[in-house]
């Protein structure tokens, strides 16, 4: 080839060690299985401290579970996502593809000991999460075969759209050729008046510390004093 003595062929064992991605079509999914009850053991030992007993904690991260309904499992759309009075967005409210969870838990969780779970452990703990989310029953065994059925019950499985212009590659279904906004570079008398739609609430001004200390001592401006000065 053109680059003599640069790089070398990867061995099969090396590819096996690092090619761990699992796709939405389940390509790359390892053989294996795990039950909800085995998953609960792992969960309580290795996950609950951060994510809460029921995956509801937001002490270190957003809640994983909650906000989905039996009706969502039927429709494939999480209805709460339409509600502006429902700010929480849990993982299960958003995720459309169960492969994403298998893939991610295997590569990254537990957060402080990533890649420490066996493939079967990942099946088990994912089975437990699916059970917490009321997608599979208590006695469920998740396997590389049954995971395909689970996909059909993911609450937000039809909740994604690629009908937009923000993908720089080849077309996705429905992908728009044109951006969804189309401002014009008007130069004069562009509108009758400039109305404020939002201002920083008074109480939020001090929430980012003393801004005087976040600006240079010299220059055309100074930072506003929004908190106590720290000792020099």
């Amino acid at each position: 080839d053109g680059f003599a003595n640069v790089g070398r062929p990867a061995t099969p064992a090396e590819i096996k060690a690092w090619d761990i991605d699992v796709g939405p079509d389940f390509a790359g999914l390892p053989k294996g299985s795990g039950t909800v009850s085995r998953g609960m053991e792992i969960w309580e030992e290795k996950c609950a401290s951060c994510h809460g007993t029921f995956g509801e904690s937001n002490s270190v991260f957003n809640p994983l579970v909650g906000g989905t309904t039996a009706e969502d499992i039927k429709t494939g759309h999480v209805a709460a996502l339409k509600r502006t009075d429902f700010p929480a967005r849990t993982t299960f409210m958003k995720v459309a593809t169960v492969s994403t969870l298998y893939d991610y838990i295997r590569r990254a969780m537990p957060w402080n000991a990533p890649k420490s779970l066996s493939d079967d452990d990942v099946y088990a703990v994912l089975a437990y999460l699916l059970n917490l989310a009321e997608i599979v029953p208590d006695d469920y065994t998740l396997t590389d075969a049954t995971i395909r059925d689970v996909q059909k019950r993911m609450p937000n499985r039809d909740g994604m759209t690629t009908a937009h212009a923000l993908w720089p590659g080849p077309d996705f279904p429905g992908m728009a050729a044109k951006p969804d906004t189309a401002n014009a570079a008007c130069m004069t008398n562009c509108k009758p008046k400039a109305e404020l739609a939002s201002q920083l609430p008074e109480h939020a001004r001090g929430a980012h510390g003393n801004i005087a200390e976040q600006n240079r001592l010299i220059g055309p401006v100074r930072g506003q004093r929004t908190g106590p000065d720290t000792a020099a």
Binding site: N5, G7, T11, A13, E14, N112, K115
Partner: peptide, 24 residues
Amino acid sequence: IAATTVAGDGDPNILTPTPWGSSL
């Protein structure tokens, strides 16, 4: 000398977990 071939099953830096890939 940089290796252009690799002994045995492969490079231990790939076959065994790296410290940076398995910690927070």
